[in-house]
Structures are given as structure tokens and as C-alpha cells.
């Protein structure tokens, strides 16, 4: 029954592989469904109660597999199977339910996500719901928009009327803690600001009634776990896919040479 190091497959291993395969099948089918229904409804489906149950089952299966041969014997396979658990745990900590749990346990108030709408020259700490502007709460710090800049492509023949496409836009901001400036930064697309447990992203802007910027504010809870999972997954998959075959090849060559 025991795994013999060759192609012999023990009963538990066979079972775990089949359960894993069924999970893959469910994930593949639901994610095709999600691609057809659009991001918003897909997010709702994977975040629903059955969706969450599936993630918990998946993480449990992965944790069990970590203690079974041959996974437990191979550093690459260990990394590959542990990484998704880290990513799922980090994703939970970063989600709205994860924040509610952490708020209750740690006696704190931290929003998981929201938007800051700041007029040029003003400071703001009111976090709103991005689509409808419903207030969500106040940040422990304020952000002042010192200057907002839009850079456009030079006008070309392809856009005879109207303005040429936007090349970049940028918010120069100052973070205020208890009214005192503590940090100045430029926030651009691809270049968020990290402050006080939140990332602030350049998300949108407008000019009516006056120039304003919209920053998306996202809590960084769980993010380091997710990134640790990414690194582990990347390292594991290259070690398994490239490292192991190359080592085996070298060993064979040395064997033949001797």
C-alpha cells in the first residue's frame, strides 16, 4: 500500500488526487462561467457562501496533502501545495469578511476598501463607496491634493476632433496626521502610495465643479501572506518544472561518464 517511490500509487494518494482533480474540474468550469458572466457577477459567485465553502475545502485538502508522501518528501511539491494555502489565507484577511473578523478580535476599525474624492487644495479623510459615494467611514489620516496633472499624447492625425488620448495622470499629495503634514508623494497609475496600513491608488479624476482626483484606498491586511504565497509558488514551480529535470539530467550524465 505504501508509496514505493516508483509509479505505485497508494490508496490515500489516489483518493487525494481524484478529489483534487474534481476540485480542478469545478474550478475550471466555474471560472469559464465567471468569464462569461463578467467580473462583477463572477466576483459575487466566488465570494458567495458555496464559493467560500469550496475555498475552505480546497485549503483543507492542500494542508492534508502536505503531510503525505510524495509531497512531504519533495521541497518543490511542498512549496507548490503550501503556496495556495498562504494565498487563500491572505485573500481572506484582505477581504471584507476578513476585516470584520479581525476588527472584532483586535477591537479596531479598519475598512477593507473604499475611495477618497479630493478637490485640489483640499484635504479629505472620508472614505466612500466608489460607485454611489455612500460614506464608509473615516481614515485615521487625511490626504491633501496639492496638485493634479494630466499628460496627453501629442495630437495626431488619428484624433482630428477632441483631445488626444491621456498618457498619464498624477496626484501630488501630502498626508496629514492630526492636521500636521507627515509625508508628500506623487500617486500615479502603477505607482500607489503606501501609508498607515493602506495602499492609495490613482483611480480616476474630474474637473467639475473643480479639479478633483479619486484615489482607491485598499487595506494591506493579508497582502504579505499573499505575496509570500506568490514567491513560494514561483520558486516551487520552477524548481519542480526546471530544476528537478535539469538535476536528474546532470546526474544521469555523471552516471554515464563514471
Amino acid at each position: 500500500m505504501a508509496f514505493d517511490g516508483g509509479r505505485g500509487v497508494s490508496t490515500f494518494r489516489r483518493l487525494a488526487l481524484w478529489v483534487g482533480l474534481w476540485f480542478f474540474a469545478v474550478l475550471a468550469i466555474t471560472s469559464v462561467g465567471g468569464a462569461l458572466m463578467g467580473a462583477e457577477r463572477a466576483s459575487g459567485m466566488f465570494g458567495s457562501t458555496p464559493g467560500r465553502l469550496l475555498w475552505v475545502l480546497f485549503a483543507t485538502l492542500l494542508l492534508m496533502v502536505l503531510f503525505c508522501k510524495p509531497v512531504s518528501r519533495s521541497p518543490a511539491l511542498l512549496a507548490l501545495h503550501a503556496a495556495p494555502v498562504l494565498i487563500l489565507a491572505g485573500a481572506f484577511l484582505g477581504s471584507a469578511p476578513g476585516h470584520r473578523v479581525a476588527d472584532a478580535l483586535l477591537h479596531r476599525q479598519k475598512a477593507s476598501e473604499g475611495a477618497l474624492l479630493i478637490f485640489e487644495g483640499r484635504a479629505e479623510n472620508l472614505l466612500v463607496e466608489p460607485d454611489r459615494g455612500v460614506p464608509l467611514g473615516r481614515l485615521p489620516f487625511s490626504v491633501r491634493l496639492d496638485r493634479f496633472t494630466v499628460e496627453r499624447y501629442p495630437p495626431g492625425p488619428s484624433d482630428p476632433q477632441g483631445e488626444p488620448p491621456v498618457r498619464s495622470y498624477r496626484s501630488d499629495v501630502t498626508v496629514l496626521l492630526d492636521g500636521r503634514p507627515v509625508q508628500s508623494a506623487s500617486i500615479e497609475v502603477n505607482r500607489p502610495l503606501h501609508f498607515g496600513g493602506y495602499h492609495l491608488y490613482q483611480s480616476s479624476y474630474g474637473t467639475l465643479p473643480a479639479t478633483y482626483t479619486v484615489l482607491t484606498v485598499v487595506s494591506d491586511s493579508g497582502l504579505s501572506l499573499v505575496y509570500a504565497g506568490f514567491i513560494l509558488l514561483g520558486a516551487g514551480v520552477f524548481w519542480w518544472g526546471w530544476g528537478e529535470p535539469i538535476l536528474a539530467h546532470l546526474r544521469r550524465r555523471r552516471g554515464n561518464g563514471a
Binding site: L21, A28, A39, A42
Partner: peptide, 25 residues
């Protein structure tokens, strides 16, 4: 870095996840 979230349930993301899952399978 660009959108504020590492996973957005975007259709192309979901298709690439499907591809990854099929090969993992």
C-alpha cells in the same frame, strides 16, 4: 500596483486561471 487588487475576476484573468487549472489537472 495598477488596479489596487491582485485579482479582479476579469474575464481574461478567469480564462488564464482556467488554463492554469487545466494544466495543473
Amino acid at each position: 500596483l495598477a488596479w489596487g487588487d491582485y485579482w479582479n475576476w476579469d474575464p481574461k484573468e478567469l480564462w488564464s486561471l482556467t488554463t492554469w487549472v487545466v494544466f495543473a489537472g
